[in-house]
């Protein structure tokens, strides 16, 4: 990796960290559990690295590792988004509802 690439990656990291801090601070304690499962689902993006690993047929070991990684990351992505939605639906259904 050349130095220019490294610097640009560090830029992305620094800005994402700052942005993350600002965005997450605004999330009310009410939604902290869905927040955790949501960020978990989003960080399941490591599935893209796993997909390339599983599909590149470099050697047998890499392929096996890749498949395991794809499975576990996909569990996170699919399960994470579905459970987050299930929770948020419970919060949404009674928006400001007063009996």
């Amino acid at each position: 990796m050349d130095n220019e690439t490294i610097i640009s990656l560090l830029y992305v990291f620094a800005l994402a960290a700052f942005l993350g801090y600002l965005v997450i601070s605004k999330v009310p304690p009410l939604l902290h559990t869905p927040l955790m499962s949501a960020t978990n689902a989003i960080s399941g993006i490591s599935v893209v690295g796993a997909i390339v690993l599983a599909g590149s047929q470099h050697d047998r070991v890499s392929t096996i590792l890749g498949v395991i990684a794809v499975i576990s990351a996909t569990i996170n992505v699919v399960g994470g988004f579905m459970i987050t939605d299930r929770m948020l639906r419970m919060f949404q259904d009674k928006t400001g509802r007063k009996k």
Partner: peptide
């Protein structure tokens, strides 16, 4: 860990998503 994967693979969406998750957990 996801963010570090992004650095290793030179993949920016991994860095962004991983960092958001990392900072969310840290704030919590």
């Amino acid at each position: 860990a996801s963010a570090a994967t992004g650095f290793a693979l030179n993949n920016k969406v991994l860095i962004i998503a991983g960092t958001l998750d990392g900072f969310s957990g840290l704030i919590l």
